[in-house]
Amino acid sequence: MKITEIQSHILQYDLPEELGYSQQYYAQRTAHLVEVSTDEGITGWGECFGPGPIAVANKGIVEGVIAPMIVGMDPIERDVIWHKVYNLMRDHGQKGMPMQSLSGVDIALWDIAGKFMGQPIYNLLGGAHRRCVPAYGYGMMLKRESLADHVARFADEASAILGMGFKATKMKTGLGPIADIQLCKTVAKAVEGKGLFMVDANHCYTTSDAFYVGRALDEMGAYWFEEPVAPEDLSGYRELRAGLKTNISGGEAEFGRWGWRNILENRGLDIAQPEVCALGGITEYQRVLALCHAHFTPVINHVWGSAIAVATNLHLLAAMPPLPGGLNPWEPMLEFDTTHNSFRDDLLTEPLNIQDQVANNRGRVNIPNGPGLGVEPDRDFIKAFKFL
């Protein structure tokens, strides 16, 4: 079997309302799908992390840089392909967009391998430790509105997300430390006795401001404080983890085993959040997961994107060994964006229906069990939403 073609499909639509987080507001939803074709008629699908203009740049890397390197190769040789591409791009970027682009291609190769062997990806990874996973819902995005409006909306959204059946909920911060603490208090009160809540700062604080917010979160019982400081600030992460009771999480902006080695040896994370569609795909994710477990750091994957990204992560969560083991081991959760996302809900010929599963299955989501990813995009949908 040989790879015959690699195509990028960038999809985009206008959101019903503008959303924001600590770094920016955005009004469009973007997804970057990668399609790898073979001479045996087997097609694989992957996804590259990165919205808007980042997706456009990544398309150029996928089709203009990576494709010429690997067309004609055997797609089953995923590790050979991974290292060939990485080594040839190494001088031009061991992180960032080159790795995001490689991720989408690599995921598609795993999809091909599963289809070729008639096995779901979790079996190629060694089998399923669990057939379903709990899910948490995030929402409570920032908007161009007053603090009072944020407070009222966050209280309603937090209650609504737990009311959907999710085991926990996650909010955004980024209005400033004093206002953010007020928002967190609102959410903590709304979920009290009903479920966990987490706080995602998207690296908007200095270390001192992160301590100011984090000490307040300690008193509220937040489950984790996500990306409190810049991903480059390894010393800040280590200081925060040592000085706060709330779990410190992060890692979505790190790439490859070498970057993750630095994070883990630094001992700055209570919970690791690798992003498979960015760090190098499933091939590299497995190495990062092994490093996390070697450092006894539990993993809850970062999940953002279309139904391809969600399906990929469900396989990874199924195949993730318990850490530590036992009769009632700690369990990873599926991250689920509760905001409007047609690329997740409507892309597939047979939708995953995550929200229905959560509502009807005690907050849990089943793992797809078909060959490869176990899902197939609707080509008519892709044509309707194709941006580039």
Score class of each variant (00 low, 15 high):
Y138D: 11
S101M: 06
A148E: 15
G127V: 06
S146P: 04
E35F: 03
N87Q: 13
M117L: 15
M117V: 06
V62H: 09
A108G: 10
D111C: 03
I54A: 15
Q100M: 14
A158Y: 10
D39M: 09
K170I: 10
R130K: 12
G127F: 03
S103C: 04
G41P: 08
M141S: 07
M141D: 02
W45H: 13
A158S: 08
I112P: 06
V133H: 03
E145W: 00
L125N: 03
D106L: 08
Y86P: 00
T169L: 03
I70V: 14
V65N: 04
G137C: 07
I61F: 07
K172G: 10
E63R: 08
I54D: 08
E77M: 10
N58Q: 15
E145Q: 15
N58R: 04
L162N: 10
A155I: 04
G126Q: 05
G163R: 05
K170F: 08
M164G: 13
I161E: 08
L88Q: 13
G163W: 09
G50P: 11
E157M: 06
C48L: 10
G96K: 01
A55F: 01
A155L: 00
S101W: 05
G50F: 06
C132Y: 07
N123Q: 15
I76N: 08
H32D: 12
N123T: 11
P51H: 12
G139H: 02
E157S: 06
L162M: 06
S146L: 04
A158E: 03
E47F: 07
V71N: 12
W45C: 10
R130P: 00
R131D: 13
H92F: 15
I121V: 15
G60M: 05
K95R: 15
N123Y: 09
Q119M: 15
P51R: 13
M99S: 05
K84Q: 14
G139P: 09
N87D: 13
F154L: 02
V65C: 10
G126T: 07
V65H: 11
I81Q: 03
E77L: 13
V105Q: 05
E47A: 08
H92K: 11
Y122N: 03
A160F: 12
E157F: 11
P98C: 01
M141F: 15
D106R: 12
M73A: 13
A155Y: 00
E40M: 12
P51F: 10
A160G: 04
E157G: 08
R153Y: 09
M97E: 06
R131F: 09
G96L: 04
